[in-house]
Every structure is written in C-alpha cells, then in structure tokens.
Design a protein around this nucleic acid. Structure first.
Lengths: 157, 157
DNA sequence: CCATCAGTCTATAAAATCGGTAGAGTAACT
DNA sequence: AGTTACTCTACCGATTTTATAGACTGATGG
C-alpha cells in the first residue's frame, strides 16, 4: 500500500553516512565517495542531496576540499521531514494530510467519510513516529540493536 | 510517501454500498448499478470486485437476479485485509512486512538497519489500526460523525 | 589568471505503476 | 434458445520512478 521509495531509502542512508562522518570529525564528503561507499547511483544521489540541501538539511561547498555536510545536528534532523522532502506527504490520502491537504473530489462529505476517518488515524500514527524520530535517534536504535546482537553472540559462546 | 490508491478507495466505497444494501435487505447488486451510484468507472470496478471475490470477501451470481453480495458479515471484513488485496502490503518497505516479507538487497544487516527499525514501528502502527478496523466499525464511525454534525447543527439553531 | 575540482542545472530515457477501456467468453436463469 | 450479468484476456496512455549524460558555475591553489 504505502511505501518509502528507493530514493527515500537512499536519502536516509546518505544522511546516516554524513552523520557518521561528522561524528568522526571528518570534513565535507564528496558525492562520489558517498555514492561509492553506499552503493547509490552517483547522479541519482546528486539529485537527492541537492533536494536535501535546498530544504535546509544539508550544506555544500564547491571546489577543492568541498562536498556535503549536515546543516544541523543529527538530533535536530527529523525523519518525518526528510521523508516529506523526498517522498512527499506522510498521509495515505491527501484529504487527511496536515501539511499538504487536498480536497478529495469523489467524496461528498469529508466529515463523515468512513475511509477518511480511518485514514486520519493512520496518518496520525505514522506522523507520531516519524516526527518524533531524529537522525540521532535512528542511529542510536541501530547502535543499540548492534550491541544486542553482540551480546547474544557473547552469550552463545 | 505512502498511499491508498484510487483503486483502494473505490474498493472501500463499493464495500460500504454493498454493506448498506445488505443491511436494507437488498439482494445482489449489479456492477453497473454500483458503478453508477458510486461514480466508479464500470470496467475498473469489475476488476476490483473480481479481486475481492477471488479473495473471499464477496460472492457473485451470474444471470438474471445475479450480482455481487458480501461473502461475510461487515463485522468480519477487516479493512487491513481489503487494502492488502487491492493495494498490496501495508508495510512501507518489504523487509518489515509480516505477510509479504522480502529481503532488502541493499542492506548488509537487517537486524541493525536504522531505517528498518523505524519502519517496523510504522508498519506495526498502521497494521494495528487497519487490522482492528472492520467494515462495520468504519461504517459505525461514519454514522457517529454524522450524528455529531447533526447535533452541532441542532445546537447552532 | 588558469587549471582543476566539485557541486548545479537541464535534458533525456527506460521501466514500472496506475487508471482506465474493449471485447470475447461463460455460467445461470426464464 | 435467448437474455442477463459476471469473467477473462489483452491492451492503452499518462504519470512516476529510477536512473544517465553533459554542459555550466563557483571555489581553490599555483
């Protein structure tokens, strides 16, 4: 039904890498390096990074020593926003979208439309998660899962 | 990002109409009537109804006096199932789908993938709502909303 | 000031998906 | 047999998705 596009997944992967790089004290990252390390088609990645830059998530620098950097702290980069930038509204139907509302022609009365009432709940549930998860917390969840699987290995031995 | 297709919305509308018809003691409904009353392209609706029939949600009868009927009680028809039939998996990415799991090639370790951990929460939140909402409860929510707006009108007068 | 580096912009295109259509076929009832 | 009404197969055009190519612009270093 609903889906995070490949483009959206690429965007998140690129952001993880940029966050990791910043954390390791690295400077700007080249599109080419990012593309190779993350196995993302280079030109496609260019377009993605540009969109994120235009939306204020990234900063870039041209010329030697240039590249891309996060524009803010990973704890301030909200996944819901990133996904909206790349993949559009979170809502399953436009008539329940908070930030990109559009009326639904085929529906006589929005206030009493059964589908709308249910989908409103769905959109709120999705937004509740994605608007409360930052790049930092996603990375933290990942790190926690990594520690857990290490623990399990240790326990098995 | 995620979205319920027009086809999915048509399917739900058709089911509401069929439930209403059954409730009113009506017999089988003709595709043609349903299409006209709900303003759905006839041939498109045919395909939708057929899919729902093949999935066991509807029953049909050919020839004079034929048409479509719900195969079960509205309280037994789960919206999550209907949407899966028409629009595919509820999960935003295949690697978190419970009923249509598919591995994600671009991901080295699923257990620790940040995107996956977050999207798993999203898929669970969506499924929690849609798998606990039946055709009957959607109709009931709609009826309740209708009563409420009537009350407000009455209060305004 | 010129060479190189690296992001930016415009255009194009293959492939998949979506929304819809046409028409022949088949089962059922009268 | 004839009519009714669902069923099946095939197709079509538009849009979106996932890219790719190449010219352009701005920054840096010598």
């Amino acid at each position: 039904m609903t889906s995070l596009s490949r483009k959206g997944r690429y965007a998140l992967r690129a952001l993880y890498a940029l966050a990791g790089n910043a954390d390791a004290g690295g400077g700007p990252m080249l599109i080419a390096d990012l593309a190779e390390r993350e196995n993302i088609p280079r030109k496609f990645l260019e377009a993605i990074l540009l969109e994120l830059k235009n939306a204020g998530v990234l900063r870039s620098k041209k010329g030697k020593g240039g590249g891309y950097v996060l524009a803010k702290n990973p704890a301030e980069i909200v996944l819901g926003d990133v996904i909206r930038i790349i993949d559009g509204p979170l809502a399953p139907i436009p008539c329940v979208s908070e930030r990109a509302y559009a009326r639904c022609e085929e529906c006589a009365d929005e206030a009493t439309c059964g589908t709308r009432l249910v989908m409103k709940q769905v959109r709120d549930a999705i937004a509740k998660i994605l608007d409360n998860t930052t790049l930092a917390s996603a990375l933290e969840q990942s790190a926690r899962a990594r520690r857990q699987s290490l623990d399990q290995v240790a326990y098995a031995i």
